[in-house]
Computed example of a mutant assay.
Amino acid sequence: MITQILLLALGLVLLITGANGLVDGASALAKKFNVSDLAIGLTIVAFGTSAPELVVNVFASYQGHQDIVFGNVIGSNNFNLFIILGITGLITPIVVQSSTIWKEIPISFLGIVLVYLLTHHFLGSDSNTLTRVDGFLLLLLFGLFLYYVYKQLKSDPVEIEVKVNNYSNLKIWCYVIFGLAGLVIGGRLLVTTAVDLATTFGMSEKLIGLTIVAAGTSLPELATSVVAALKKNSDIAVGNIIGSNIFNLFFILATSAVIKPIAYDTVFDLDMYILAGGTLLVFIAMFTGKKKKLDRWEAAILLIGYLGYMAYIIQK
């Protein structure tokens, strides 16, 4: 048991270290080709913070661990929304732009509703399965979201500062190669060990996916948002969280379904309701009041709500 826990921790370390290495190397490489900080921030860095979820889900999907696939995505989104946004909001009240309230948060909510409909016979499916066709549909919508982001930047450009080191070509490729290796090895190790732990403790793969795997793969988002909050950069703090949730639903879950159709267990329904309710709560909190912001007391409610939710599903 101790060995399994140590291997799980090693998998998480390799996963996070690999993502950081890949981001550093790819950012330095892009800078050598005169790619702007804005483009680096919206592509390489954004992908890097979601790379752990993607790698874990690719392995879990290929190996047929459907509960870890859904548990990781739903659990990560709940962790992002309740824990990361809650901690960030406690550090500093989060003031957001109107586009976040009226566009990004509704898009995130739309993703939740769409995934629910696709897995509950509402859109022509004859089983609770996210099929390859469903996956391609979600990928198409993700492409439209990227186009929306591109148009938004064209009409209202905002520069994102990205720290890029001036590495030699050899060092850049070492970072990229070892970063990818860390992601692959760490992701495989994390999935395998999580399944072993679930068997050892008599826990379900669903619970492992919703808790340990989801929290572990969300660490890059947590670090990014906390640093942004400390620097009083609310746009990046909340944009990272909402953007990650959209990325998880429309790209990572879609990619998993394209690799292999994923059977959906209706025991995840409660977790989907919690995610939908939390998204609506954040929308209402930011919509009401004189300023479009999430106050500290509202952030505290998110944290307390998540702890109660976790206590309930663990007891259940």
Rank of each mutant, 00 (worst) to 15 (best):
M1P: 05
Q4A: 12
L8K: 01
L10Q: 01
G11I: 10
T17P: 00
N20R: 14
N20Q: 13
G21N: 11
A26I: 05
A26K: 00
A30Q: 00
K31Y: 12
N34V: 07
D37V: 01
I40F: 01
S50N: 11
E53N: 05
V58C: 07
A60T: 04
G75F: 07
N77I: 12
L85E: 01
I91S: 00
I94N: 01
I101D: 02
I105F: 03
P106T: 11
L110C: 12
I112R: 00
V113S: 08
L118S: 10
H121T: 06
G124T: 09
G124M: 08
T129E: 13
T131Y: 08
V133M: 13
D134M: 06
G135N: 10
L139A: 09
L139H: 10
L141I: 15
Y147K: 09
Y148M: 07
Y150F: 15
K151W: 02
P157N: 02
V158S: 05
V158W: 00
N165H: 12
N166T: 11
W173A: 02
Y175A: 06
F178V: 15
G179W: 06
L180H: 02
G182F: 02
V191W: 03
A198W: 02
M203T: 14
S204D: 05
L207C: 04
I208W: 04
V213Y: 03
V213N: 05
A215K: 10
S218T: 13
P220G: 11
E221G: 10
T224M: 10
S225A: 15
V227Y: 13
N240T: 14
N240C: 12
I242H: 05
S244D: 09
F247W: 09
F247D: 06
F251M: 12
A254T: 09
A257T: 08
I262P: 00
D271N: 14
L275E: 06
G277P: 06
L280W: 06
F283H: 14
A285K: 01
M286C: 13
G289M: 12
G289L: 11
K290V: 10
K292Y: 12
R296E: 07
G308Q: 07
A311Y: 15
